[in-house]
């Protein structure tokens, strides 16, 4: 029987399941314990599993992310929660120079079975230092897998395979999704290799991930009302990208719009567009378009923030421009 729950509950269930199933799994990060998690993802865990396994850390992102890498090398299966992607910049050295490079520079002697979770994205009037969408940066790095759960099913199903992965996995959870409710299907297992078509269409492929997925779905409904059937692809895995699913959808629709909350220049959207060009150029009936964040630090004022981010209306407009 499918059941209704929200994104936060789905992720909480997934962590709970992992903590029960494997004594090597533990959660560490800022306020994951007594506070119950900044976004309440670990509410109740501290009492149930104790302070050793639900480990509150000081405000030392570099230190505790590096410690999680060491704990993984030492035989544990840490889930480290970095409160937000904004603060992950303080830990970037350990993620890029140690976690991602470790297996390769040791000639394959050591793998780092580590899961790093962090909140990403804008849309809550938190201004320039709390609104980054830098998952595209992370997707640039060889040696890590990058996930962006965008649905209830993704939130429930991605953690288990991420923990089973012998290499570092970085999971980006968009804050705009946490209260989203939906049906969790009976089979919610997720493979962390492939993108998924969330809406079938024929006229244009809208390719997106994370917090932009609901916006793309809204845009698709508006387009349908105008007689345009959009296919919506949820990338889910940002590294390595599932090129086959992307190109299959574009080859079918012959048009593509890439939606990405990252800034336009050097964005993940640019990479998706490049792959479309490399693989299905001759299938295209129009140049590929993208809807990204504007090139500005995210402003505080609501109307300005909304103008800076991808919105359903911008996606609809991009599709209509393309179709003439």
């Amino acid at each position: 029987m499918s059941r209704r729950l929200n994104y936060r509950e789905a992720m909480r269930e997934a962590m709970h399941e992992a903590l029960v199933a494997d004594p090597r799994v533990f959660l560490m990060g800022e306020d994951v314990g007594m506070y119950g998690g900044t976004y309440a993802f670990s509410k109740g865990f501290f009492d149930e599993f104790g302070p050793e396994r639900i480990r509150d850390t000081p405000l030392s992102e570099l230190g505790f992310v590096g410690a999680a890498i060491g704990a993984a090398l030492g035989g544990m299966r840490p889930i480290v929660e970095v409160m937000t992607v904004n603060f992950s910049l303080l830990a970037l050295d350990q993620i890029v120079n140690t976690a991602a490079a470790y297996r390769h520079m040791s000639g394959g002697q050591f793998s780092v079975p580590l899961v790093i979770r962090m909140t990403t994205g804008a849309g809550r009037q938190l201004a320039a230092q709390h609104s980054h969408s830098l998952e595209g940066w992370y997707a640039h790095i060889p040696g890590i897998r990058v996930l962006a759960p965008a649905t209830i099913e993704d939130a429930r199903g991605m953690l288990a395979p991420a923990l089973a992965d012998p290499d570092p996995v970085v999971i980006f959870e968009h804050a705009g999704l946490f209260n989203m409710e939906g049906e969790l299907p009976d089979d919610w297992t997720v493979d962390i290799r492939s993108a998924k078509v969330r809406r079938v269409g024929t006229d244009v492929a809208i390719i997106t991930h994370g917090g932009s997925l609901p916006k793309a779905m809204q845009a698709a409904e508006q387009l349908a009302a105008a007689g345009i059937e959009a296919e919506v692809v949820n990338l889910r895995v940002l590294r390595p990208l599932d090129t086959a699913t992307i190109t299959a959808s574009v080859a079918k629709c012959h048009r593509a719009v890439v939606v990405d909350e990252g800034w336009r220049t050097g964005s993940l959207a640019a990479e998706v567009m490049a792959r479309i060009m490399e693989n299905v150029f001759f299938e295209l009936d129009a140049p590929v378009a993208r809807v990204c964040s504007e090139e500005v630090p995210i402003p505080y004022a609501r109307h300005l923030e909304e103008a800076a981010l991808p919105q359903p209306e911008k996606i609809v407009a991009a599709v209509k421009r393309m179709l003439g």
Binding site: F26, E52, L62, G63, F64, V65, G66, A67, A68, I69, G70, A71, A72, L73, G74, G75, M76, P78, D93, Q94, N97, T98
Partner: peptide
């Protein structure tokens, strides 16, 4: 770069 790693190895040993 090695210091946080050592903390984690110590944590794993203790746990």
């Amino acid at each position: 770069g090695g210091l946080p790693l050592a903390v984690g190895l110590g944590l794993a040993a203790k746990m």
